[in-house]
Design a protein around this nucleic acid. Structure first.
Lengths: 212, 212
DNA sequence: GTTCAGGCTGAACAATAGTTCAGCCACGGC
DNA sequence: GCCGTGGCTGAACTATTGTTCAGCCTGAAC
């Protein structure tokens, strides 16, 4: 632990500094001089390695996706489906492994979904497919009540799953600590799974007659 | 209907054009020349009316908040609480009233929550307070099961409520039409309320024993 | 007709952005 | 020693950005 590996080379430092800055202030909100200052290299190195600022972004994307693939692909019981929900422990470990960088990675993820990058769309579609498959499977087993809306259920699952990531700054402000805090993360996933299956109400069909 | 009101003055056109562009590409992603071109005025008019691009942003914020206050404040049964959920019909009407501009307003709202503007935080806090109050009230009436997580429930409610707004481009891509489409909006709110109260499962305490 | 005020113009300006390129330095093979 | 090779530098360049300001135009007041 005390034996730190040698300082990564300029190329790697550029990618990691850029990732952190993009996550924090967005691509347009960061100048190349901000990046090279953070990475402690010269301006020229960006075009030398990546051709342009946009080239750097692509490299950062690739780097991010590499870390991200770990989470989605290598998930235990990779045939998709229920594993998605049960994987919270696994994500927990991933966060521990990426300590220090995890915040930036989640921040970058948030921006990707909101800035409509091409692969941000691809990632959302992936989530949608996973949720959709899960719903189909549960339905086939008769585990979903007939009156549940099949169109919106996958989306609502995704909202619950991604909510903390998308709104992290606000959640942190109110809770006083990061929503990616290990304990909070685990507890949230338990609450989320429970709400999905059973709701909060006492009576199942508690039709409170406030609309329609 | 055919009797269109006279073209709004430059100041107003600037605010509305800027709102639409900011919503679409973000504050930093839009140049003052983009804005004046869209508003069909000259560059000088921005500093003439607003002093600077930042001054314009403030004016846009004020304009947006004015439209937004309508939704939150004037909500029927304004003592907060259950009205929040029951208000879907009301929001429905609001969308109709702001036809054409509604997309930009929601887009601007999305950015506000993500760019961490001061008042984006204020708006989130407002949502949190509404959800929190609702939970407390339901709890006092004994309408929430004891095993439900009181800390996360308000957040999960917010995620469900804001999810479509935050992820609108992706939802639209998959569904083939806007999530703010009247019919979809209504249907989604029904699904959301039902899921909250009862979940999707058949047995209430369906402890599927996949974790802890 | 003169004056004044207010909405508006757009060429010109200074600052900042991303990009270029001639060349430095350290290291390994000859 | 010499010669590459590859990572890296940073002053200089160009395009674009936000901002300025002298002045135009219109309509109401005198």
């Amino acid at each position: 632990m005390t034996e730190e590996p040698p300082r990564p080379d300029g190329r790697q430092r550029l990618i990691q500094s850029a990732l952190a800055l993009f996550a924090d202030r967005g691509f347009d909100g960061v100048s190349v001089r901000d990046i090279v200052t953070a990475a402690d290299v010269s301006v020229g190195l960006i075009s030398h390695h990546f051709g342009s600022k946009d080239g750097l972004r692509e490299a950062v994307d690739a780097y991010f996706i590499a870390q991200f693939e770990e989470v989605v692909t290598a998930s235990p019981g990779q045939d998709g489906g229920g594993a998605q929900i049960a994987a919270s422990q696994w994500v927990d470990d991933w966060i521990t492994r990426h300590e220090g960088e995890a915040g930036a990675l989640f921040g970058y993820f948030r921006r990707a979904l909101l800035d409509e990058s091409e692969w941000g769309a691809a990632i959302f579609d992936r989530f949608y497919n996973i949720a959709q498959t899960l719903v189909t499977r549960l339905d086939a087993r008769g585990q979903i009540r007939p009156d549940v809306d099949r169109l919106w259920l996958p989306f609502l699952m995704i909202y619950l799953e991604l909510g903390t990531t998308l709104l992290e700054p606000h959640v942190r402000r109110i809770l006083g600590r990061s929503g990616f805090d290990k304990e909070l993360w685990r507890r949230r996933h338990r609450a989320y799974g429970q709400l999905l299956r059973s709701g909060y109400g006492r009576q199942r069909a508690a039709r409170t007659a406030d609309e329609t």
